[in-house]
């Protein structure tokens, strides 16, 4: 993980008071999170398994969309290499607000077992990440849980103004 100075006490840390409009918009957003297919390595297979018959993604309203312009959640599943880092930043910039990032698996969290010259030590060196999933590879149930946590998080945010950038990256 990157060394950022994160200010946890901003906004008092307390949940924000939400209006009905906020709640309605958040309800809509959380129940139709369209995911960008970003399976890079082994975790990508578990992501596909989460979308397949047994652990279905579609019941949460999540569909895999290939184009970043249409997606809201980017699930970085797999090892991010230095050759690829430029492209993940481009794709992240092409996604429209509001957008969230789930970092799935050890390789995306911190570089994982690949402590080598060609691996980026964590996707959060190049894009800001909202949720980190541990595991190598995390089970499909972990990804489902992460999606539901993300839905919970979205429902507690203020919908109106543009997303407050979490970090400098």
């Amino acid at each position: 993980m990157a060394q950022h100075k994160v200010n946890f006490s901003e906004n008092g840390g307390l949940p924000v008071a939400l209006t009905t409009v906020d709640k309605l918009v958040n309800w809509g957003r959380s129940n139709s999170l369209w995911a960008l297919t970003y399976g890079l390595a082994c975790c990508g297979i578990e992501m596909m398994a989460t979308g397949a018959s047994r652990y279905d993604f579609d019941r949460f309203g999540t569909i895999f969309r290939a184009s970043p312009r249409q997606a809201e959640v980017m699930v970085v599943a797999g090892t991010l290499t230095k050759k690829h880092a430029e492209f993940i930043r481009r794709l992240y910039d092409q996604m429209a607000e509001p957008k969230w990032v789930i970092s799935m698996g050890s390789c995306a969290n911190t570089g994982g077992m690949f402590n080598t010259y060609a691996t980026v030590q964590g996707a959060d060196r190049v894009i800001p990440v909202d949720l980190y999933l541990p595991g190598c590879a995390p089970r499909p149930e972990t990804l489902q849980y992460a999606l539901m946590m993300l839905q919970k998080k979205i429902r507690s945010e203020k919908a109106g103004k543009a997303q407050r950038p979490k970090r400098l990256v």
């Binding site: 230095k82 880092a85 430029e86 930043r89 010259y117 060609a118 980026v120 060196r125 190049v126």
Partner: peptide, 15 residues
């Protein structure tokens, strides 16, 4: 194994 100076800053410099 962990790369030299140029390697460790490659993605930061590039982006």
């Amino acid at each position: 194994l962990q790369g030299d100076e140029a390697a460790s800053w490659y993605e930061v410099d590039k982006i």
